[in-house]
Design a protein around this nucleic acid. Structure first.
Length: 417
DNA sequence: TGACGTCAAGATCCG
DNA sequence: CGGATCTTGACGTCA
């Protein structure tokens, strides 16, 4: 059972994917961006290895215009060395990767050109996974597409176009129920006719339920039968609804108690891809909460990342968690994360924010000159007078952490949440 | 024709 | 001029 996250590693320096506009897409620019992105991917893989995260979705933005004729670069060969190095890390550390083309890749479109683009896009995604020398259990997850007023025919068109795909794409393709059109029943029916494995998405099923109203576990068990040995372990998508938004957007973070209940009800051995705004931060929360290892080292590492954030909310909570860690055992992991979730939900309090900012500033006050010391004092004054936001102070401290290459602070969620 | 979703690039505004 | 904030882009479907 692995738990993973998608595309972005929050708080990891130099790990974001660069893009360019179509009008700037010269060979030179595309090459620069590709190099940047492959190195960024390597940093993400390294991060996952160091943090015991064994499942990861690679961003479709890895190769700019990767499926467009605009990009004529032979990138698999140009960056062979770099790709091989990443491939080796993925393999030796047993990381399961995947990719997920967006909602604009529509294999069953009525528009011939759109279908052609979708096929090219799927080939691009397969080429990335092939270039990383991953086996066929490393999947490409796709939605079925549009309905066009006639779902039956649209599903049939999906099946026909799927049959015509290149073998290396077919070997990796997996289909997922979506939040608007294709329910889990629809997707399972396509799977019956094609043997394509099915990823069950709990939130999509909540928003776009199948007419048969049964539990998540029922659908997970049913979907499990679509996964063959060559496909690897069954995968599911798990997310929670953002309570502050009208639409079906994903939550900022995974609320751990709700996840734990879901997890404890699972009867199948599945790999879980989380879809959530805070990405790796929630992945670590879920991994630690469901692990049987001795958790103390992992939780101490987590505490080092959360501590200034908690201090910026409440000194009492900060002391309480420190006490909890003094006599820590695995049974206390939920209390640890519950306390953190509770504290992070508190409204901004200036006194606590300044206290935390002073603590972080403490790393630099003897390293900086009078000019910087005055600047910090002025920032605090301005913050007290509502002239600047706490974000401005955090950004200033973040720049100092970068300038002094303070690795401990750079890992801190204080700057990112 | 605009909403939908995503996130960085690009554009603009501010002190 | 650096920094913060707003808009655009690239994609296809649907109301």
């Amino acid at each position: 059972m692995a738990i993973g996250y998608a595309c972005i590693s929050v708080g990891l320096l130099n790990s974001s994917m660069k893009k360019c506009l179509l009008k700037n897409a010269t060979d030179e620019t595309l090459k620069d961006i590709t190099k940047n992105n492959i190195l960024a991917l390597e940093r993400q893989i390294d991060y996952n290895i160091h943090n015991n995260i064994h499942m990861f979705r690679i961003s479709s933005d890895l190769i700019p215009f990767g499926s467009s004729p605009v990009n004529k670069l032979d990138w698999p060969n140009l960056f062979k060395t770099e790709l091989n190095q990443i491939a080796e890390k993925i393999k030796t550390n047993n990381i399961r990767v995947s990719m997920h083309p967006g909602q604009y890749t529509v294999l069953n479109s009525l528009n011939e050109e759109t279908v052609k683009n979708a096929i090219a896009d799927l080939s691009y995604h397969a080429l990335v996974l092939d270039s990383l020398k991953t086996d066929n259990s490393n999947k490409i997850i796709l939605h079925v597409g549009g309905v066009y007023g006639d779902k039956k025919t649209a599903m049939q068109r999906f099946i026909e176009n799927y049959q015509a795909l290149a073998q290396n794409v077919k070997d990796r393709l997996v289909i997922e129920n979506d939040d608007k059109s294709y329910t889990i029943t629809d997707v399972l029916s396509i799977s019956q006719q094609t043997n394509v494995p099915v990823v069950y998405d709990n939130l999509h099923n909540y928003l776009n339920p199948s007419s048969t109203l049964v539990s998540d576990q029922y659908w997970i068990d049913t979907a499990s039968k679509t996964w063959q040995k060559k496909d690897g372990k069954q995968k599911i998508h798990y997310s929670q609804l953002n309570p502050n938004k009208k639409s079906g957007s994903h939550s900022e973070t995974i609320m751990i108690n709700e996840f734990k209940t879901f997890y404890d009800n699972l009867a199948n051995d599945v790999d879980i891809m989380l879809e959530v705004k805070d990405k790796n931060i929630s992945a670590l929360k879920c991994i630690n909460t469901t692990s049987n290892n001795n958790l103390l080292p992992a939780i101490e590492k987590e505490w080092s990342r959360y501590k200034y954030l908690i201090l910026s909310k409440s000194q009492t909570a900060y002391i309480k968690i420190r006490e909890l860690l003094k006599n820590f055992d695995n049974d206390k992991v939920l209390v640890f994360y519950n306390t953190i979730e509770q504290e992070l939900a508190l409204p901004e309090d200036k006194g606590n924010q300044i206290n935390a900012a002073q603590h972080v500033w403490g790393y630099f006050k003897d390293l900086e000159d009078d000019k910087q010391r005055l600047h910090f004092v002025k920032l605090i004054d301005d913050y007290l007078e509502d002239k600047v936001s706490i974000k401005k102070i955090k950004n200033y401290l973040y720049r100092l952490a970068i300038n002094h290459n303070n690795k401990y602070l750079l890992d801190s969620y204080y700057f990112y949440l």
